[in-house]
């Protein structure tokens, strides 16, 4: 048993750290949102509110796990499992450090995109099987939003892939030794950031679960641990998007050598997690049709132009 790519110890540690980070994010987000709204946030349980996550977990585990009698039980039960496994499987291809990771795959970026598109089913099935109009509205919105933004997400990544010449995430990181891809691929980065927020349906693009309009959207009928799985999967998705941005545009584990590579990775990913929480605190939610027309009429042409220009530059410098 040693720390190398794909050993059981590494896989276990990665799972533990990812789920632990996602659970801690529940507290961290509430605390940061509090600070940004001139409040203090939860600070009563434990040292400066550090045990708030334990309290939340106890609450969510001991709640009644109710399945509505009118729901389609089969789809209702598997829906939270799909998104949980999809986001956790995506971490298989993330390179955390030179010798830490689950697999070294030649199709890493595509694998993440595939898992992201499978995650859409969870949201749709959850809303459809609840047999509730708010849930159905939420999952209709989720379906259209996720399918649309998958497109821009994929195209915005292709600039990075073209510069590296590989879908392998480790090769992408190693190709950034001379300079991070944020500089040549700035437009791709911005599009990926926006599409990533929309893909993990967090604020400001939380239109599928807009509390003020349609209760909680697709998970209106969920309670107890099933709701908990949706909830934690959203935070794991947040960690995933932050890790992806770190790997694809900010050089992954690369950094000055006074810190070990894994620490550099965590520092960069944490900065993006903080940025996403800041976006939640600061930016208002757009209307649904604004989101769609913004995506198809602005982001799609922009990402295509970005890809085209990148291709032209690569070809002309060869």
């Amino acid at each position: 048993m040693s720390l190398e790519i794909g050993s059981p110890l590494t896989i276990g540690l990665i799972l533990l750290v990812v789920i632990g980070t996602a659970a801690m994010l529940i507290t961290v987000e509430r605390r940061l949102l509090g600070f940004w709204q001139e409040r203090l946030g939860p600070n009563r349980v434990g040292w400066f509110g550090s045990l708030q996550v334990v309290a939340d977990m106890i609450k969510i585990f001991t709640k009644e796990d109710w399945i509505p009698p009118f729901a389609d039980k089969f789809s209702f039960v598997i829906a939270p499992g799909i998104i949980m496994s999809a986001v956790l499987l995506s971490f298989a291809v993330i390179p955390f450090a030179p010798d830490i990771g689950v697999i070294d795959s030649n199709i890493g970026v595509l694998f993440v995109l595939a898992m992201a598109s499978l995650g859409a089913y969870s949201v749709m099935l959850g809303g459809l099987s609840s047999d509730n109009k708010y849930a159905l509205l939420g999952s209709l919105r989720a379906a259209a939003q996720m399918v649309s933004y998958e497109v821009f997400m994929g195209i915005s990544l292709l600039g990075v892939v073209a510069l590296t010449g590989s879908f392998n995430m480790r090769e992408i990181v190693e190709a950034q030794t001379d300079g991070w891809y944020i500089i040549p691929q700035f437009i791709g980065f911005v599009i990926f950031l926006i599409a990533g927020v929309a893909e993990s349906h967090r604020l400001p693009f939380d239109i599928p679960e807009a509390e003020q309009e349609i209760c909680a959207g697709y998970h209106t009928e969920y309670s107890g641990m099933k709701f908990g799985m949706f909830f934690v999967a959203e935070y794991i998705g947040l960690v995933l998007i932050s890790s992806l941005i770190t790997v694809l545009f900010f050089g992954g584990w690369l950094g000055p050598s006074f810190l070990p590579p894994i620490i550099w990775f965590f520092v960069k990913a944490s900065a993006f997690i903080g940025f996403f929480i800041l976006m939640r605190a600061a930016v208002p939610r757009p209307r649904y049709d604004q989101l769609m027309s913004y995506g198809w009429l602005f982001l799609l042409p922009l990402s295509l132009v970005n890809l085209l220009v990148t291709g032209v530059i690569i070809l002309s410098t060869q």
Binding site: L110, A114, S117, Y121, G127, A143
Partner: peptide, 17 residues
């Protein structure tokens, strides 16, 4: 996985909804 399972089937489900 991306095209068939991820995109086309989502649209099927979308219509069924």
């Amino acid at each position: 996985a991306i095209v068939y399972a991820g995109a086309i089937m989502v649209l099927f489900l979308f219509v069924i909804m």
